[in-house]
Design a protein around this nucleic acid. Structure first.
Lengths: 344, 344
DNA sequence: CGGGATCATGTTATCGCTACCATCAATGCT
DNA sequence: AGCATTGATGGTAGCGATAACATGATCCCG
């Protein structure tokens, strides 16, 4: 029937419809079918219509693996985030994905967890798929990772952290400033006894450490700097507060590295009849829906994930769509906001 | 320097290290390098070592795009789930990913949302990347989608729903049975007035409808079948309960299609001084951490996402690793469990 | 001690698509 | 009218890897 010479090699499965089949059916050259799919403006309307009809008739689904190899562009952007259990990341990824999809890129999502997967290994696996660009959470990466990224020569945007020397582009959140700001907020309310529950995650620890430091610098007492296993849970928040109870004989201000932990602490406080905010003032982090709906609703730090996602996508797209303009490093710091509620 | 003939074609960017470069550096044929990476047991120890040294020295990262085209195996499994905002899906995906990773497959995750993305379009985009297998949430798919999946000729597992005629394999949850069981549970507690808040998501609606039907069949009164916009939020649960308040003049049993909604309903109930469980009994769905930590902790339906993920991965792997055994359709129904707590 | 079996490695021919250049017709401009 | 320009389409040559087969070398055992 067709002129294709089917190699003896790899005769597995039914041969699927390919671009050349569509070309034959529409009586045009394969290259023309490719143009209809990728640069339709360079094909005459009637030819395009004929080709589209053939595509529909044959149920052709382009093979982006082949296309990616040939063009050296996979139209895919990889995103490495620690978790999707955190609503901020959900929103971030959603916005990042939407912005890229609008420009014809798909996002390949990889979850790194907290420490259980080796970053170098993960990045290598991701780069093996040859993404056109990469989003990376955090801004401290080891030498082999940085080397691989440099060799890959693709746009990279680091998010959710600040770095002295970013790999390429950065959409950061200043976690130390968050800790300091929360301490300042509590001080302004007259607190002089503090405690902090921080998850065993680099950025949570930075927030916690900065909080403690600022609290001490202001002459306050830091009763505890409790480290909570990542990922954060309500139960861990309850447990941490339970352990702290004996020290809570006077008015104390507590900063939790996550709203989930803060909620747990509040539940435990209530169970022990500890008055909030008179005896224990609480501030969380993340501005999850929970923080507003809890009883009492609690104060928290809000960071707009959506904004980070959009910014990051914008930075990458600027590079990806660049016609000839020199690519420049970009960095932006995303603001945060203390949302005051009844818990403090 | 090297013997490679670099085509004039596609001279973009710095040429990255490729398999043939490693081969040259290690003084072996390209095929041998490929073997070291894919079937090391077929290479002598000393050659393998020499090749590995060259790989490390050159910082070679294999190109899976090229490998995928050549072998027609991408070592990638696609997963389409509606959201990661639901902890059950997070757990499901995590377990699915882990099980596949252990066998050398990576998971490409796509979020379909609830209705905003056209499934056919999404599936086409996913298949264009030629995954070796596919996980699909839900079990009702339109004709074009089914056709594409048939043409793709890859193992497909549908999850979280039951179907009369699954596409291929199925790891289901019987949502109608959930609704019926919850109604039965409430009846056993002497309830005769019922209400249900169900999200505008196919499976949530099935749970809600089955609940209402069973309640009526038992001679009960169904005060409301409230549809909540998907995705579920605490606020929506509060609003729905607020609207229902005028009807709650007598003891009523409420089933919510999500723990998030149930939590919202409880918060609102407390705000209005409605006694739980005496006046309002509540049951959620999902067994989120929230349901146990809330005050009061509330009854919910637990479905093990981890189990679904593991099962689904197992089914796919059975096919993917099949040596020659005839592939058979598989289906399993994952059980659910009503976890009784203080709210009912 | 010889021939088939096994092991380690090399050679060849694609996988399905697209960049680049060539071709040819229609068009614009002086 | 003559010639450069533009637009639509086609032909060719890879992209970087691997399946299948080919080749020697080594091995085993009667």
């Amino acid at each position: 029937m067709s002129t294709q010479t089917r190699g003896a090699h790899q005769a597995v499965g039914r041969p699927s419809v390919k671009l050349s089949d569509v070309a034959a059916a529409a009586d045009v050259a394969p290259m023309t079918v490719s143009r209809v799919l990728n640069t339709p403006e360079r094909v005459s309307a009637e030819t395009a219509q004929r080709v589209r009809a053939a595509i529909d008739r044959l149920g052709y689904v382009p093979n982006l693996v082949a296309g990616g190899l040939s063009s050296r562009r996979t139209r895919m952007v990889a995103a490495i985030v620690p978790t999707m259990a955190h609503p901020m990341f959900v929103e971030l990824v959603q916005n990042f994905t939407d912005a890229l999809r609008a420009q014809g890129y798909e996002v390949m999502l990889s979850l790194s967890g907290y420490g259980d997967v080796n970053e170098t290994t993960l990045v290598r696996a991701v780069l093996a798929r040859r993404p056109d660009a990469l989003l990376l959470t955090g801004a401290s990466h080891d030498a082999p990772t940085r080397q691989m990224l440099a060799d890959a020569a693709i746009p990279v945007v680091e998010i959710f952290d600040v770095a002295r020397r970013p790999i390429d582009m950065l959409v950061g959140v200043d976690h130390a400033a968050v800790g300091t700001a929360v301490a300042g907020y509590f001080r302004a309310k007259g607190h002089d006894r503090f405690a902090v529950f921080a998850a065993a995650d680099p950025r949570a620890r930075i927030r916690g450490a900065a909080f403690a430091e600022a609290a001490r610098a202001a002459g306050g007492t830091v009763l505890a700097e409790t480290v909570i296993p990542a990922p954060s849970t309500i139960a861990a928040g309850r447990a941490a507060l339970r352990a702290l109870l004996p020290s809570l004989d006077r008015r104390t201000a507590l900063f939790c590295s996550s709203d989930v932990v803060a909620f747990g602490a509040l539940v435990e406080a209530r169970a022990h009849g500890l008055a909030v905010p008179d005896r224990l003032a609480v501030c969380g982090f993340g501005d999850f829906e929970l923080s507003a709906a809890s009883d009492p609703p609690f104060t928290t730090v809000s960071v707009e994930g959506a904004r980070i996602g959009r910014h990051a996508a914008g930075f990458l797209l600027e590079r990806l769509m660049a016609t000839g303009a020199p690519s420049r490093a970009r960095r932006v710091k995303v603001p945060f906001r203390i949302v005051e509620r009844a818990s403090s």
